[in-house]
Amino acid sequence: MLPTHGRYDYAPWQGRTPYAWPGGAALAVYLGVNLEHFAFGEGLGAELAPGGPQPDVLNFAWRDYGNRVGAWRLLALLDELRLPATVLVNSAMYDYAPQLLAAHRARGDEIAGHGRTNSERQSILPEAEEAALIAESSAAIRKHEGIAPAGWLSPWIAESRVTPDLLAEAGYRYSMNWCADDAPVWMTTRAGKLLAMPYPQEVNDIPSVVGRKDGAADFADMILDDFHERLAQVADGLPQVMGIALHPYIIGQPHRMRHLRRALTEIAAHRDQVWITTAGGIFEHVAALPPGVVPGSEWAT
């Protein structure tokens, strides 16, 4: 027997119980906007070009462009198209760029936890230190937003063996770390159930643009191909979740924004066919479904 995580059982796509999203839609679409802050001269960070010795000014400034400029361009596009967002927040952003968080708060976007900073991984920490990281990040969100976050995405999607347990113990209701499905699945933890929310590792500007070196038009085409293929697939009655992961220091560059506008405009034009929502909205809907409908709900407690 291979080692296993023990968080969920195998549930084949075929044979699942059909259910609908609000309005009878079969496809739910959400935008995951990552707002991240990085340490200067140390720690982790995506690279535009191979970094030199620290301080790596080139890559630090490129990432900081997203908070200073790119995120504001993205906000304007979301307003233009009347699109909600789930904002994945490094809690360090509240001290660094409070105006940006206030702008998302003003438009009613969902705020989800995304650690303290993407300069670190929580997976290498002892359990007590990882729990403290989750608590610190969560407390900052609760302080500024007036409500505890329901969802979590680890920086670098890094988990220890006990991360789902710690998240459930901290009051989180869903995690975006497990990208193993196209629909939500209940996971088991030592503190009860936790929903695995689909989060894209393909329709995501970091692996696409930074990892595979896709062009702006290629990434927009990927978004639209994913969207239209899913629209065709959901005719089988099985609901799907399509996430689009965006990082303002990447997608907020003008040449990429032009193509993102093309893709999101087309998706917004189908809002009568699909449910354009937030990850939190998807969680609330799934949590209200009867036991046995969503995989894992029959045994996760």
Rank of each mutant, 00 (worst) to 15 (best):
A269C: 08
I276E: 07
E42K: 13
I276V: 10
I223Q: 06
L48K: 07
L58R: 11
N204G: 03
V89Q: 00
E120I: 13
T86V: 04
W72H: 13
E159C: 14
W152D: 07
A76R: 15
R230M: 11
R105K: 06
G237M: 03
S208I: 06
S208Y: 05
Y65C: 13
I250H: 00
D9A: 11
Y199A: 05
C179D: 15
T117K: 01
L27Q: 01
I244L: 04
A20K: 06
H228D: 14
E145A: 12
V33H: 04
V203D: 02
L2V: 11
A135K: 06
G52M: 10
I251F: 00
G51S: 13
L260Y: 01
A102K: 00
A217R: 07
L153A: 15
E169W: 03
M242D: 02
G280K: 00
Y30E: 05
I124A: 13
L48Q: 13
Q54A: 14
Q54L: 15
R107V: 06
P3I: 13
R256I: 04
L44V: 10
G292K: 01
Y30M: 05
E47V: 13
I124L: 09
R212Y: 06
P12E: 13
P291D: 10
P184D: 01
R73F: 12
C179N: 09
R7L: 15
P126N: 07
V69R: 15
N67F: 13
A220V: 08
P248S: 02
L224Y: 09
E42M: 15
F40N: 12
E229I: 12
D165E: 02
A288I: 05
S138Y: 08
A191G: 03
F40T: 11
Q233C: 11
R161G: 12
D181E: 02
A217D: 08
W186M: 00
L74R: 07
Y96I: 11
V33K: 00
D225S: 15
W275Q: 03
R73P: 09
L27W: 01
R16A: 11
R161K: 14
R173G: 04
L48N: 08
A103K: 05
R230C: 12
P184M: 02
E136A: 12
W275Y: 07
V87E: 00
I206Y: 03
A287V: 10
W72F: 12
L260D: 04
Y19V: 11
R73D: 15
T277Q: 03
G252E: 03
T117R: 02
T163E: 03
A140G: 07
E42Y: 14
A191H: 05
R261H: 13
I267A: 08
L125V: 09
H259V: 09
H285R: 07
A217S: 10
D9T: 13
L133V: 14
G215Q: 05
G66D: 07
G23V: 04
S175F: 01
A216S: 14
A158P: 00
S208V: 10
I134G: 09
A180R: 02
P12H: 09
L289K: 05
A150M: 10
G292A: 06
A39K: 07
A112I: 08
L264N: 09
L101C: 04
A168Y: 03
G146F: 01
G171D: 02
